[in-house]
Computed example of a mutant assay.
Amino acid sequence: MPKKRKDGRYQKKVTLSAGKQKIVYGKTIAELNQAALAVLEEDRQGLIVDDKTLVGEWAKIWLEKYKANLRPNTKAMYKNAYNTHIMGMIGDMPLREVRPVHVREVMAGVSEKSESLQHKVLLTMQQIFNTARQNGLMIKDPTEGIKITPHTKPDKAKYLTKDQTKKLLAACDDPKALAFVALCLYCGLRREEALGLQWGDIEPDSLTVNRAVAFIGNQPDPSQELKTKAAHRTIPVPAPLREILGKTPRRGLYVITETDGGAMTKIAFRRLWERVERRVDFPVHPHMLRHTYSTTLYHAGVDLRTAQYLLGHSSIQMTAEIYTHLERGDGLKAAGRIERYFLEEQPSKTS
């Protein structure tokens, strides 16, 4: 039975599913009953009743418990997305009070930023709130249905033409730069995989990707972890790459080294790559070389499953998207040939 308090409010006890009792209050009997129903509904849906955990408090737990085993660069990406773009907007809000409108406010704050950054911010919020829901701190994920703001921009070249590839290789006057470019072009290595390659990883006709050198600040990450398990692979070494590697000076364990023979620092690699960029008359970045290798596999008729292995993709869907894009391009190139065929097939007019 409801009990009236000295302050004029009503109160009553509600028994939760675990046997614990919760006291609810209301200015009127109707308000009291509504409060009781709300508590029972939270309990029914598995929520921790009366939880007051803040977004910022859970974000810290999420990062420590769910992201502890990530590579330092990946963990830093999540931390930067939260600290820079999320914390100031909703960090002090109780988790259970966050609604889609609050998530949209965060995304509006980065809407003018790159699509890549928007994806990182949204992904960070999705993971924070999804894990909070799994732990009974929220009923619904407020990021559901939220999307980034796409930017209208001209399509950038994703891979090099054959002519550009020849020019790039000819432009590399530094043996280290030439070895890096060749490893990415002829074996499809990611930047960190090429920088992590050691001479002991190379056989006469193949090389094995055993480690990756990413950066923490300016220094190489000592963990040398590969991006995924699929990144560990053995790749055939074509003749042009064998020739280039044969002329590359061996100054230490690594194929591409600092002047002292150690692993590259971030600044040293940036200088190396900026020199490469200055010597060609077209835009180029390291990942374009890997994309170029993907196109080589496609045009060489390498099947999808083998291409997935050689590229070190953890999902065949990633490889399929590349192949589908290239197939679409080939289809458009065929338009002229198709049109000529139909013109030739038309019956000639007689007077």
Results as ranks from 00 to 15, higher is better:
R5I: 05
D7T: 08
Y10Q: 04
V14C: 02
K22F: 11
Y25G: 04
L32Q: 03
L32R: 03
E41G: 04
G46H: 08
V49D: 06
P72L: 02
P72M: 00
K75E: 15
A76G: 02
A81S: 15
T84D: 10
H85G: 03
G88W: 02
V103R: 09
A108F: 13
Q134D: 12
P150V: 00
K156Y: 10
A157T: 02
K158F: 00
Q164T: 00
T165S: 09
K166E: 12
K167C: 03
A171V: 01
K176A: 11
A177R: 00
V181S: 04
C184E: 03
G188I: 03
E193N: 10
P204F: 00
D205G: 12
D205R: 14
A212V: 06
V213A: 02
N218F: 07
Q219L: 12
P220E: 01
Q224T: 14
K227A: 09
K229E: 11
A231V: 11
H232D: 05
T248P: 03
L253M: 12
Y254G: 05
V255F: 05
D260Y: 05
D260R: 07
D260M: 03
G261W: 06
G261H: 05
T265E: 03
R278I: 04
H291R: 07
L297A: 04
L304N: 03
Q308F: 11
H313P: 01
S315Y: 05
I316R: 09
A320L: 13
T324I: 09
T324S: 08
G329T: 02
A335Y: 12
R337Q: 15
R337S: 14
R337H: 14
E339M: 13
Y341V: 11
E345K: 15
S351E: 14
S351Y: 13
